[in-house]
Structure formats: C-alpha cells, structure tokens
Design a protein around this nucleic acid. Structure first.
Lengths: 336, 336
DNA sequence: AATTTTTGCTATAACGTTTTCGTAAAACGT
DNA sequence: ACGTTTTACGAAAACGTTATAGCAAAAATT
C-alpha cells in the first residue's frame, strides 16, 4: 500500500485537487471547516506530499548541502552536528559531501549541485587558496544562498562563520612563551588557507610582541602525508636546533607531535611545550594532557545553518557580507 | 542565467523533447549522429537534468538516507566516510539524520522519509530494543531497500552489516584474564541492544571458559548521562570490591574509566587493566596507551552502502537476509 | 433593491522530465 | 515489385504538485 496522493484524497472528499492543496497549505481561501476535513483525512491516510512534485512546481525545496573536507575529525563532526540540529528543527534535509581535501572533488560536487537539487549550501573549503573561482562561478549560475564556515575563501564576498583565529592564536602563543619557550614553532600546511594564515599571523605577532624574532626556523611545513610529517618532525626534534614549544594549528599535526615525542622520549612539557588546535574529547587524557585551543565547532555549525536558512527563506541570497565571529577557547593543561 | 532545460535544447536542435531525452539517455532508438549532436549542445550549455522532474516521472531518484545515533564518534564518522565513498562514486546523494539516541526522533525521521524523498536507507539504530516496530512498519508502507549496520535490530529480517562482536569480545576478555585480571568488569548500558548483548555474551563466556564465575558484580550499568557514570564508576572503583579489569564496549565509557582512574590515581594497568571498544585515533597516545578492540568502521559503511545500492539497482528489496560479518581488531597496548 | 465585495471553491495550466505509442521512411526479404 | 521489418524520430500523456484565473453564492454596502 504505497503512499496515497492528493488526487485520491480529493476524490474521497468530493473536493477538487486545488482545494485540497490549498487546505493543506492552510490557505486563507479555504474555510476552516473544509480545512479540518482535509487535514483529518490526510492524517488518517498518513498522506505525505510528494517532494519531487512539489519541488518541481515550486522550483525550490527544503534540501541543503554540506560540503566539508572530512568527517573523521572532531571539529567537522561537531559542526555537522550543529548544522543538523537546526536543519532538523526546521524540517530541512541535509546532504553531505566529503572532499577529502581534493580540489577536483570539490569542483565536481559543486558542478553536480548545479542541477538544482538543493536550496542552499554550507561549505568549508579544502586547502589551497588558488581555487576559489568555482565557488564564484557556481554562485553566478546557480544563484543559491551559500554560507562558508571556518575554512572560508577570504577573497570572496560571501557570508561566513569563523572563529577569532588571530587573537586566540596570539594568546596561545604568548602562553607558550610565558611558560618558558624561547624557540616556538608553528606548523604550517603546504597549501595556504586563510584560516591558517590568520593563525600564523597571530603566532608571528605574538613572537614579535614578546621580543622573539620570527625566522624561517619558526615555521615548518607539513603535508597531507602523515608518515612524511612524522619523519620530518622526528628529524627536526632530533636536531640540535630543535624547538622548545609548538603551536599545532591542526588536530592531526598535534597528534603527530605527540607520537614523535613519545618515540624520541622527549619530555612534554619540559623539552617541548605543546598547544594544539583541536576539539579532541580525549585531550585531557593524553600523556601528558594536551593543552588545547578549541573552536566552538557545534556553535559554528549552528550559526552557519541558521544564517543559511534565513537567507533561503528571505530569498536574500544577494551575497550578504555577514561575517559571524565566535571565540575559540584556550585550555591550558600539562603539556605547557 | 539559470540552468537551461530540455525544451530549449530541443528547440535549438530542431528536435522534439522526447528525442532529446532519449538521446541523453543513450537510447538505442536514436541514431548515433543525433546523439552526438544532442550531447554536444548539452555540454555546451552545461545542461543538467532537473532531478525533481526526473525523479517525479521515474518515481525514484538517486538519493539515500543515513540514520545514525551520533556523528561525534569516530566509529560513526568513519562509517559515514565509508558510505560516502561509495555513494559518491556511484553518483548518489546522501542525506544524513542524527537521532542522538532518541527513539522519538528516530521514528519521526522515518515518518518524514515516507514522503518518497529517498530510494534507500542505511541505519544504525539507537539504544532500546523495544522499538523496532517502526522499522517494520516503514518497510511495509514504503517498500524501500534498507540496510542496517553495527547497531542492528536482531529481531527483524533485514540485510545487516556487523562485526564479530561475540568472538572478538571473548578474545579480548581472555586477554584481560591472561594478563592477571581476577575480577573483570563489563560496562553495560541501561537500554539493551543486540550488538551490546553479543559483546556481553562474549565477555560472560570468556569468564566461564577461564574458570571465573560470572556474577552481578561482573556487570555495571551506565547511562547516557556521563556525569552520573563518572560518579558511579568512581564509587565502585573506590570500594573494596573494586574490579581489576574492565571491558568497555562503548567508546565514551572507556574515556570515563580513564578519567576516573586519573582522578583516583589508580594505576592502569597495575590496579586496573582496560580494554576499550573504540576507534579513537588517539588511543595510543593516552596515558597509558589504551588497548582497543576496534571495529572496521569504514569498511562496514562501505559494505552497507554497496549492498544498499545493489538492492536499489536490482530492485531486490525483498527483505534480503544477507548478513555481512567483518572482523574487529584487537590491539593490546599498555593498559593491559 | 441594486450594487459591490468577500468567501470558498473549481478548472486548468504550468513545472521538466520519461515513457508509451504511433508512424513515416528506409532497409530487407522474397 | 510487393510485403515485412527495422530505424529514427515525434506527439502526447503521464508523474503529483502549486499557482493563476475564474466564478458562483453569500455577505456587505449603498
């Protein structure tokens, strides 16, 4: 007994389809008595309007897409949780697409979504600052509301939800220095990314503000290949000029630092003070407990979704230039 | 310049819409020369068929739904990753719905999906073994392919992807015992769940097989409230009859055990040997490194999705009774 | 009482596809 | 040459909604 449709409802009620449609839409054109009749029969038969028919006719639906680099990462998982909490409440359906830091994949997802399946987009871009053109292009042709969060394309005018990366990294770095670090190190990625550049800027300014010179040795570049990173850091940490403090602006880098220290038997925090930017729930249980700068991931997701739905419903998809900034949270534990 | 449609394509080509439709569908009714003409113009205009129109007409689409209790959990995140890897490859779109262990939410998602938005479902149920009726009911009325993974409704006949919970828990428990544990403890949940019952059965049988009697004290019941659990475990661990080994069949319980031990200054593994069922990437970095029984989460997701798409495409949604069993992996570290 | 306005409903045309059926023309068989 | 099949396309009817326009009857206004 597959779902009933409006036509059958109308027939049984002795009404026209249009009346039924309007009644279900709670239109003022319909008397409250017939409305009630319709609603009741609809409930009795568990009638559900066919979203394809309805979306086709209305030329829009209640589906949105989330494009993120990764889901196996507490930050993004929390963000999705936040997003879902609002789409769920507002009866939107949420598609999820993972790019795995692959620009081509990001492009192809976007291209796919030009078919009109969705009414809005929440995005966190993958690394690499070259490729923002596809977003602009997508917007030109699809004209859909888009909200970026955390990893945002700084060069594009879109609504964004970010956290205070510069300030909080500045503060974190100062804590490293005040705890005694003379040679702090910042781990940067191969591919540039606005979010990370802000963190780096905070790091750099904190050094300078505290009388430490910022040199080539204040930075190391890690890649997507975790084994390479492990070896790279191992080599650096074994050298005579090894750093005595680390700010890891990405979760997995912090983990690698711990692995290397464990294997080299370096003492954290004595030999090396560590602050990692992460939302790991187990940070406090690591050996030693990891000092973290954590992002309000859930809230960022929630804010992004709230903003997006507002744009969708108000049809104000003019590239609103709202930027919502939330605060990161620094938690100092034994690793500093 | 919003997307072009078939009608405009047909007009420009001097063909009928049906011909264009068939050409794009690579129908044998159309000559290869016109096919080429059509394809080329379609590509030129970046034509994308409207999925709503197409789904409406065909009465099915390329969208599936994933219903899971939680995404902020490495197991489920990995599983979603696995699912997405295959839906992506096969050009399906993936909806995500989080139940947060809330049965009502689970029911309402299911009810919502009776509107026909999707062509198939991948589910991991929330705790509580009473409420499987809604799945059966959904299937009766929607007749959609459904695949369950990990947390499966044992009482229902549906295709399932699980891991060898009984055997691997048996083995894990034996390791605890062989490492010297005389009084192993199993943490169970308030709400029963087949998956967990299997693990408990493995635990119990391992005790018996190794000459340890299985009593009320071999079990403790934790809830969804982590603070309560913390206090409960703290009390137990402070008592004289405290256990000297723990099998935590859920990630968050293992974390709580660590928290309690840290705060009570209990030495792991000397005072308490711990094995946790988890997919935490940081297990090796905990203090001390946590011995884990981990599930092949990504693979489970991948298998579930592969099976589902097969069912969708073969239209064999007869409640196939396939059960795919993958192997968990035991990694003994310092906590034992 | 004659008029305008409002109320409550219906008929019908979209929305953009896919599918079924029909049919000329071309190809084939005898 | 004639009938039959195949090829390549088009016309039109779905799919299940929603939106627009129209229209009686009832209510309100003059």
């Amino acid at each position: 007994m597959k779902g009933i449709n409006m036509i059958q409802l109308a027939k049984e009620l002795g009404l026209s389809v249009s009346t039924v449609s309007k009644a279900l839409g709670d239109s003022h054109e319909i008397s409250s008595s017939t409305k009630k009749r319709v609603m009741e029969l609809a409930k009795k038969y568990n009638y559900k309007p066919n979203p394809f028919a309805s979306n086709l006719r209305k030329k829009k639906g209640k589906q949105i897409a989330v494009i993120i680099p990764d889901i196996v990462n507490n930050f993004f998982a929390l963000a999705v949780d936040g997003i879902e909490s609002v789409t769920m409440a507002k009866h939107y359906d949420t598609f999820i697409y993972l790019t795995h830091e692959n620009l081509e994949r990001e492009k192809s997802v976007l291209e796919h979504l030009e078919n009109g399946l969705i009414s809005g987009l929440i995005i966190s871009v993958c690394t690499g600052r070259e490729g923002y053109g596809h977003f602009q292009q997508f917007y030109e042709s699809a004209r859909l509301p888009m909200v970026f969060f955390d990893r945002v394309p700084d060069l594009l005018q879109f609504p964004k939800v970010i956290s205070n990366n510069y300030e909080s990294t500045f503060e974190s770095t100062e804590r490293l220095i005040k705890a005694g670090s003379k040679r702090p190190l910042f781990i940067q990625t191969e591919e540039p990314l606005y979010t990370l550049m802000e963190r780096r800027r905070g790091f750099q300014d904190a050094l300078v503000a505290n009388g430490i010179s910022f040199t080539d040795e204040s930075l190391i570049t890690c890649t997507e290949n975790m084994e390479d990173n492990y070896l790279l850091l191992k080599k650096l940490f074994s050298s005579r000029k090894r750093p005595d403090g680390i700010f890891a602006p990405i979760e997995k880098f912090a983990i690698t630092v711990y692995q290397v220290c464990r294997d080299l038997k370096l003492n954290i925090p004595k030999d090396l003070k560590v602050i990692g930017m992460t939302n790991l729930r187990t940070a406090a249980l690591l050996n030693p407990s990891l000092s973290t700068l954590s992002q309000p991931a859930f809230d960022m997701g929630r804010e992004a979704a709230t903003l997006l739905l507002k744009m969708i419903e108000k049809k104000s998809y003019a590239a609103a230039n709202d930027i919502i900034v939330l605060a990161n949270e620094l938690t100092i534990r034994d690793s500093v």
